[in-house]
Design a protein around this nucleic acid. Structure first.
Length: 819
RNA sequence: GCCGAAGUGGCGGAAUGGCAGACGCAGUCGACUCAAAAUCGACCGGGGUGACCCCCCGUGAGGGUUCAACUCCCUCCUUCGGCACCA
């Protein structure tokens, strides 16, 4: 055993293992970060995406975003803001349920244990959360209000039941989420998965599509995220056109098209295999073929339909539709390239001007009639602009005017109307799971449903000893018969409870509201309090939530806005995505790659301050960047050097720190520059460069023998949001009895941030030829004079014609000469 | 295929019209030490010249705008993220 690695401790050693728990205890005991709900101070609401407390515990990606928000929160407090900076748990979800099924333990117990681990880990990093506001989505006092919001949606007609296709795995006896299905097989076990219609709860998010799209404008979010949401919503303008069915006067077919101008070029129609019209129109002699095709299509997943269908399959129904513009009889086909969920589930096919229709027509020998001039339709569909041809009343028009004219004509004739379609689908809101919020609905014996009354909430999850799959595709709750079947106390009727539970998205849709008023028993959030605190000023989290979580939360927020619960249109004013941290080999961290870094290990070996500082020093917050253990040591060295600047080997305050009169000039300038840069960089979340600047200050201070106390105190305050434990400890050793958390943020004097003399560059034809020290305030003319006097420049330009001289005060002088 | 972001030393990155490589890591040399660790100091893009000075090249590739381009514009390549028959 080596004796060298247990070097003798000296009283002046930097020991994060001792000072970090000490200050964490101090903050907890003194409730240092408790946030008053009301205050005269301006508010600042800074939010992390709350985590799913997985069994694996925290990984180094979590503290990245949490540190960034913590720095800003601590900074804003020192700037005099009343800062709301809470943390909680998105604790419903699949992994706990699966683990429960495997181990026979209760998900609540597993969840509780995981939360305890997460909380211990998060607390060990010294984040300044107000733990009095902690919430968990699995707490009945919380999900009571999740259920309440669901009921509001139901009352507004925004929650409805429908038969929806789900991923049903017969072998596992359960329904799987899309992400649990890989290549048509179950993620666990590799069993086949089929699509099967089941009764589901669905939220009518499409009713809010337009507002969700338009209100993106006012948000300070990354453009890429806004673009992804716009694309997800997928607004497109066009027309809905009514086609009559030949020989079946009581039937009609609605199609959606973005190109009503090409109506005269429609040579056939296609309906989705799942379309209800198929059964009604199919001719007897085609029935067998069509049914076979429908069955084939039902077996395919959405992925197979798109990826494998390089060749567009389809079958003829034997029926014909009547084109309303020219009464042409066109065949109706069934093909799975038309999706039931978009538009009307039926299209008019214009093979001359739509590439998919073109491919289909080629394959099945259907006619292709050009109606827009330009392009070569023997090669490909032509989708560009041109002049309308073969189009009756539209002939001679360009595409856009033709669209307007035909829509007006269709509306006049009652054969169609202008229509906006969205790619966005209604939100499949039910899961056939135990570990989620129960949907507070009763199915009565007479076939009606009764939403629970507010005073019947929360509808608690029944406590069960063992969670077993139902085998029917319903949730494990069907096994809990004494919970399931009741006599409804309100109507007196026999009733069966809803067995579907809510998806994990539900609880995370509104948690930012609950943090404002976490113990309210009368409402999800107090109206006056939300008025003070909303919107969230800064929301930081991973880009994986770019679309779903952020879209769902915005949707709920708008509904709550409409019913007067909240008073802002949008929940999150500013959004920032932190980039992923990769393993040391540059690959994504994962257990199987063996490159996972555990924050606990870094805290144990180097301390929380080092971990925090390193994660911020790695690079820009938004960037993806690899972990480097050597880099950890680098910032740890910086903290040790900071420590030694303040604390002598025998543990006393460095005697060089004193209220010196007339401080050393270089340090004075560096100090003011440092305050300025650190302040501005924090405001712009550029933590890596803020840290660099503090390193520059330290390098400078180490050279000095006289360290003015006011600068040394200011530096500790600058460092404190980044490395709060060491900062508190040094602050105390500088003679302060109280925490520095509410000390005023240091200020700088602009006069000290500009130098008296600066080095300027003298260029000839844009190339640096000489440098000179000049007074900082010298004007362009003076600069030019100095430049021309330079010996090197004189030799350089000798005998050449000076064409132009550009002098930029404080920067450079460029002399442009001829050859 | 479409949309978005990004390409800078050996590595992470800085500079967003004005000295490319701040700060850190790694590396080399030196000081301290019996020795090592720790610490401190110096050097640290490539090439020519070769202590120094000096010159040339250099921010994915090519072109353009400008007195001046890592930075702005165009074309292309590569990587990453997202979407993907949406009529």
């Amino acid at each position: 055993m080596s004796t060298t690695d247990t070097a003798a401790r000296r009283p002046g050693d930097y020991l994060p293992g001792e000072i970090e728990p000490k200050w964490q205890r101090y903050w907890e005991e003194n409730r240092t970060f408790r946030t008053p709900s009301v205050s005269d101070k301006p508010k600042y609401y800074i939010l992390d995406m709350f985590p799913y407390p997985s069994g694996a515990g925290l990984h180094v990606g979590h503290p990245e975003g949490y540190t960034a928000t913590d720095i800003l929160a601590r900074y804003k407090r020192m700037k005099g803001y009343n800062v709301l900076h809470p943390m909680g748990w998105d604790a419903f979800g699949l992994p706990a349920e699966q683990y429960a099924i495997e181990t026979g333990r209760h998900p609540a117990e597993i969840t509780q244990r995981n939360i305890a681990t997460f909380k211990r880990q998060i607390m060990s990093l010294g984040f300044s959360y107000d733990w009095d506001r902690e919430v968990s989505t699995t707490n009945p006092e919380y999900y009571r209000w999740t259920q309440w919001i669901f009921l509001q949606l139901y009352k507004l007609g925004l929650a409805y039941q429908a038969e929806m296709m789900v991923n049903w795995c017969p072998a596992l006896g359960t329904v799987l989420a899309n992400e649990e299905v890989i290549d048509g097989k179950s993620e666990r076990g590799g069993h086949p998965v089929i699509r099967k219609p089941m009764r589901q709860w669905v939220l009518r998010i499409t009713a809010y599509a337009e507002r969700l799209l338009n209100d993106l404008e006012e948000l300070d979010w990354p453009e890429s995220i806004k673009e992804m949401q716009r694309h997800w919503i997928g607004r497109s303008e066009g027309a809905e056109v009514t086609f009559a069915i030949a020989e079946q006067p009581d039937l009609e077919m609605e199609v959606f098209t973005t190109r009503p101008d090409t109506l005269f070029g429609a040579t056939y129609c296609v309906i989705a295999p799942e379309h209800e019209l198929v059964e009604k129109i199919v001719a007897p002699e085609y029935k067998a073929t069509v049914q076979a095709y429908q069955e084939e299509a039902a077996k395919k997943s959405d992925l197979e339909r798109t990826e494998l269908a390089k060749e567009k399959s389809g079958v003829f129904t034997g029926a014909y539709a009547i084109n309303p513009v020219n009464n042409a009889k066109v065949p109706i086909w069934v093909a799975d390239y038309v999706l039931i969920g978009y538009g009307t589930g039926a299209i008019m096919a214009v093979p001359a001007h739509d590439q998919r229709d073109w491919e289909f027509a080629r394959m099945h020998d259907l006619p292709i009639i050009p109606v827009v001039s330009g392009g070569d339709i023997t090669e490909a569909a032509y989708t560009g602009d041109g002049v309308m041809i073969n189009s009756g009343l539209l002939n001679g028009l360009a595409v856009e005017p033709a669209k307007e004219k035909i829509i007006a004509w269709l509306e006049e004739q009652g054969k169609g109307q202008r229509k906006v379609s969205y790619r966005l689908r209604d939100w499949l809101f039910s899961r056939q799971r135990y570990w989620g919020e129960p949907i507070p609905i009763l199915h009565l014996e007479d076939g009606t449903v009764r939403p629970l009354n507010d005073d019947e909430l929360p509808l608690l999850l029944p406590d069960v000893r063992e969670i077993k799959p139902s085998g029917t595709g319903e949730s494990p709750l069907v096994n809990v018969t004494d919970w399931l079947y009741i006599t409804d106390p309100v109507t007196g009727k026999q009733a069966r409870r809803e067995t579907n539970t809510m998806p994990q998205w539900a609880g995370s849709c509104w948690y930012y509201l609950r943090f404002i008023d976490p113990r309210n028993t009368k409402a999800p959030v107090d109206f006056d309090l939300q008025k003070y605190w909303l919107p969230v000023d800064l929301y930081v989290g991973g880009a994986e939530h770019a679309v779903l979580h952020l879209l769902y939360a915005r949707f709920w927020h708008k509904v709550l806005y409409d019913i007067g619960v909240v008073s802002t249109k949008e929940p999150f004013r500013r959004l920032v995505n932190q980039g992923m941290i990769l393993g040391e080999n540059g690959e994504k961290m994962s257990k199987s790659r063996g490159n996972v870094i555990n924050p606990d290990d870094i805290v144990a070996s180097h301390g929380a301050d080092t971990l925090r500082l390193y994660e911020m020093f790695m690079g820009p917050l938004e960037a993806v960047k690899p972990w480097d253990t050597k880099g950890v040591e680098g910032v740890h060295r910086f903290l040790r050097r900071v420590w030694r600047l303040y604390v002598t080997e025998d543990g006393r305050l460095n005697p060089a720190i004193a209220p010196w009169e007339g401080s050393p000039a270089p340090l004075e300038r560096i100090y003011h520059k440092t305050v300025k840069k650190v302040t501005q960089d924090i405001e712009e979340l550029r933590f890596n460069t803020a840290i660099s600047q503090m390193m520059i200050f330290l390098n400078e201070a180490q050279k000095e023998t006289k360290l003015p106390k006011r600068y040394m105190e200011g530096f500790v305050l600058l460092l404190s949001p980044f490395a709060p434990h060491i900062a508190e400890e040094l602050w105390q050793r500088l003679g302060h009895a109280e925490t520095l958390a509410y000390e005023p943020w240091p200020t700088w004097d602009e006069a000290f941030t500009v130098d008296d003399t600066v080095e300027i560059v003298i260029q000839v034809n844009g190339k640096v030829r000489d440098k000179a020290m000049v007074p900082a305030d010298i004007d362009a003319a003076g600069l030019q004079e100095i430049a021309l006097k330079s010996e090197k420049i004189q030799t350089e330009i000798a005998g050449k014609e000076i064409k132009k001289i550009i002098a930029v005060p404080g920067k450079l002088c460029n002399i442009v000469v001829g050859k």
